[in-house]
Design a protein around this nucleic acid. Structure first.
Length: 147
RNA sequence: UCAGGGGGCUGAGGCAGCCGCGUAUGCUUUCGGGCAUGCGAGGAAAGUCCGGGCUCCACGAAACAAGGGUGGCGGGUAACGCCCGCCGGGUGUUGGCGUUUGCGCCAGCAUUCAGGGAAAGUGCCACAGAGAGCAAACCGCCGAUGAGCCCCGCUGAUUUCAGUUGCGGCUACAGGCAAGGGUGAAAGGGUGCGGUAAAAGCGCACCGGGGGUCUGGCAACAGGCCUCGCACGGCAAACCCCACCCGGAGCAAGGCCAAAUAGGGGUCUCGUGCCUGCUCACGCAGGCGAGGGUGUUUCGCCCUUUGAAGACCCGGGUUGGCUGCUAGAGCGCGCCUGGCAACAGGCCGCCCAGAUGAAUGGCUGCCGCCUCUUCGGAGGAGACAGAACCCGGCUUAUGAUGCCCCCUGAUCCU
RNA sequence: GGCCCCGUAGCUCAGCCGGAUAGAGCACCAGAUUCCUAAUCUGGGGGCCGCGUGUUCGAAUCACGCCGGGGUCA
């Protein structure tokens, strides 16, 4: 099996990579500079209690065990983020969706960065951040993404 | 009998195949690993509410103080705020007896109780109400007794007057009462009869209560007898008193290794003596004294006593590895013995998770549960929930099946 | 994983050794003032006191059990 991500900084860095969303999960891929194929799984407390979260992580680990040896991106970090419904969803269809997401990531395509919903509180409190938004895509976005 | 609701106990589906995961042991290795076998979440792993083991820190003992906890009695236990049994109280219900038909008593069943002390002391009892803690008298009842007036009779005197008596009346002035009304959570025993001017434990019967004593019981307590007309309201999950228990922190404890950073800052103790022994001397050891520390005291103990040092704190670095880490107050719907029981003792058998971005996943078949069925089968349900040092409890969550108990409704029989 | 703390109006907080109308500021609504607005003045509405059980005559307050949120320790 490939290596497992253990540092929080690696997970945070993966947020800046390619993002492919599917009904059961979100796949993040990002080049890691020659570290080989690595993967990580994130399931937040919002999804459910410990039993649900652990079961989702096991299912994701099984999905990655099938998919990574053939379809993985070399020298990339792969992070799966659990979404609601990832436990009940049929395993075969999820495996199919992961394959599609990996092939899209191999082509360099993504669904775009996570859009922050404009709510009044965060907009008012931090004065610097909303200035970035109207000026277009940030600099850390891949060039292929820009339309 | 059926339906609904509530509570408690048991219990937490089973077997097998393929691909994978973690770990222990063995074998093998080209030191990357590979192979085989075994094991691999729970009754609550949860909440972190109690009690322990274990580790470190503090630590001399006794008494006292402070703080916290527990609270019927006896037993069980390593221990507990837990468990078992018993005692006592509350609530509901059934039956019997009594009855003034309001209810009371007895017995059974179910359920529940943080269940020491209110005659050690302090405090509180708002509003309402006349009165709320040495009881009080608003409406009311009475007015026997005393007072005033009237009436009748009698006596004395010149008619008007005076005196006096009453199975008489009125006033409600003195005064008596606390039964009834009313206020309140609570008004200084309850019911009935007697009693009285009206009343009242004023007297009596029964019930309740206080005190004493005897008997039974290890005890909580129960029962009997004697006695007291009844004082002594409630709150201690208010302060408090009594009895008993408790040092603090927690496996992110603690230990080892590696790496990295810094040789930095602050506070405190110091500026200090004498004697003896060994030694050529430097110095070392012991004692006395002084200072400081140990919550307080007593007796002790420890540190310092000159050396340019010691103690503590802050700051700085590392967010790596190993260990602690799982055989234990262990498990057994095994047996025997003791005990009402909780449980204890003996024998036999078993080894039953040790992860660290954190091991249980994916696919499939058969049986089991529920519903329908043309008996071939089809459909459905599967809850609450994931160990992180380990045990004993408590509390909370929880589908289905089974058993037990209580409540409500309907129907049938007597 | 361990330990500690906090929940009262939309927000920030009082009240917490029990006593009945639970207050204050900001915010909100209406009116006054102004040509209009802001500011100011006057008035008003808004609370299962996180939930449940108990103690008590009486609970935001006392006790216990849950629920939610936050902090801290390598």
């Amino acid at each position: 099996m490939p290596k497992v991500l253990t540092k929080r900084s690696d997970f945070v860095a993966a947020n800046k990579g390619l993002r492919n969303a599917k009904p059961g999960f979100v796949l993040l891929t990002r080049p890691n500079g020659g570290e080989g194929v690595r993967y990580g799984i994130t399931v937040t407390k919002k999804i459910g209690n410990a039993v649900v979260r652990n079961r989702m992580k096991r299912r994701f680990r099984e999905l990655l065990r099938d998919a990574l040896p053939e379809k993985a991106l070399a020298n990339h970090d792969h992070v799966l983020i659990g979404r609601a419904g990832g436990v009940e969803r049929d395993f075969a269809t999820m495996a199919d969706e992961l394959g599609k997401a990996l092939s899209r990531a191999t082509e360099g395509k993504g669904d775009g960065p996570r859009r922050r919903r404009p709510d009044q509180r965060s907009g008012q409190r931090s004065g610097q951040r909303p200035r970035q938004r109207p000026s277009g895509n940030p600099s850390h976005k891949p060039p292929q993404e820009q339309e």
